[in-house]
C-alpha cells in the first residue's frame, strides 16, 4: 500500500511541477471548444443543442494529450526498470499511475466543463449533466489510454501512435457519455440507462486497463 501511495503522490507532484501539465490539458480543451463556433457559426440555439457533444469531444482529445509521457517518462530515465523488478505488483503500480494521471489531467477537465458550458449557451441542467457524465467517463479514457501508453512506451514519437490506437477504443465511452448527457437534457431515454452503462464501462476499463498495460510492458521486454 505504501508503495502505491508513494507512486500516486510522486506522479501528482511531477505533474503539478513539470510545466503545469494539467493546465495545458484544460487550455487545449478551452481552445477546442472555442474553435467549434468559428467552424459551425455562432448560432446559440444550435450550439446549445450540440454543446454536450462538443464538450465530450474536446475532453476526449484533451485527455489524450499527456498520455505519451504517462509511462514513457519512467521508461526514459530508467525508473520503469526498478518498478518492474519491485515487489509491488506492476498492475497496481500502473493503476496508481493512471489514477494520478486522471486526478491531475482528467479532473481539471471535469471542473472546467461547466465554465465552457457557458460559452456554448448550455442551461444549468445540461451543464450539470455533462459535468457528471465527464466525471464518470473520463477515468475510462485514462485507463484505456494507459494501454496505449504501455504499448508505445519504447517508441520515439509514440504520441501520435497512441491517438491512433486509443481513439477507436474510446468509441463506447463517447457514445454513452453523450447519450447520457442528451438524455438528461431532451430525453427520451431516461438518464439512468446510458449513465449506468457509462459507469460500467469505466469500472470495466479500470480492471482491464492496468492488466493489459502490465502485460504489454512485460511482453515488451526483450
Amino acid at each position: 500500500m505504501t508503495a502505491l501511495a508513494a507512486i500516486l503522490t510522486r506522479d501528482m507532484r511531477l505533474s503539478v511541477r513539470q510545466g503545469g501539465g494539467a493546465l495545458i490539458g484544460v487550455l487545449f480543451f478551452l481552445i477546442v471548444v472555442t474553435l467549434m463556433p468559428f467552424a459551425i457559426g455562432p448560432d446559440l440555439a444550435l450550439l446549445a443543442r450540440i454543446g454536450p457533444a462538443i464538450l465530450w469531444l474536446g475532453a476526449l482529445l484533451a485527455s489524450l494529450l499527456a498520455l505519451d509521457r504517462l509511462i514513457a517518462s519512467d521508461y526514459d530515465d530508467g525508473a520503469l526498470d526498478l518498478i518492474l523488478t519491485a515487489r509491488a505488483p506492476l498492475e497496481l503500480a500502473l493503476a496508481a499511475k493512471a489514477l494520478a494521471h486522471w486526478l491531475t489531467t482528467g479532473l481539471p477537465l471535469v471542473i472546467a466543463a461547466p465554465l465552457l458550458g457557458l460559452l456554448l449557451n448550455l442551461d444549468p441542467t445540461a451543464t450539470g449533466a455533462v459535468a457528471l457524465t465527464l466525471a464518470a467517463g473520463t477515468p475510462a479514457l485514462t485507463f484505456i489510454g494507459l494501454i496505449g501508453a504501455a504499448l508505445t512506451v519504447a517508441l520515439r514519437r509514440g504520441g501520435l501512435l497512441i491517438a491512433v490506437l486509443v481513439l477507436p477504443l474510446t468509441v463506447p465511452v463517447l457514445i454513452f457519455g453523450v447519450a447520457a448527457s442528451n438524455a438528461a437534457i431532451v430525453g427520451p431515454v431516461p438518464f439512468g440507462v446510458p449513465f449506468t452503462i457509462l459507469c460500467g464501462l469505466t469500472l470495466m476499463s479500470a480492471v482491464i486497463g492496468p492488466f493489459a498495460a502490465a502485460a504489454a510492458l512485460r511482453h515488451g521486454m526483450e
Binding site: G20, L27, T34
Partner: peptide, 13 residues
C-alpha cells in the same frame, strides 16, 4: 488563449 499559451511556454521551459 494566446496569453495562456505564453504562460504555458514560460512554465514548460
Amino acid at each position: 488563449l494566446m496569453y495562456l499559451g505564453v504562460l504555458a511556454l514560460w512554465r514548460t521551459v
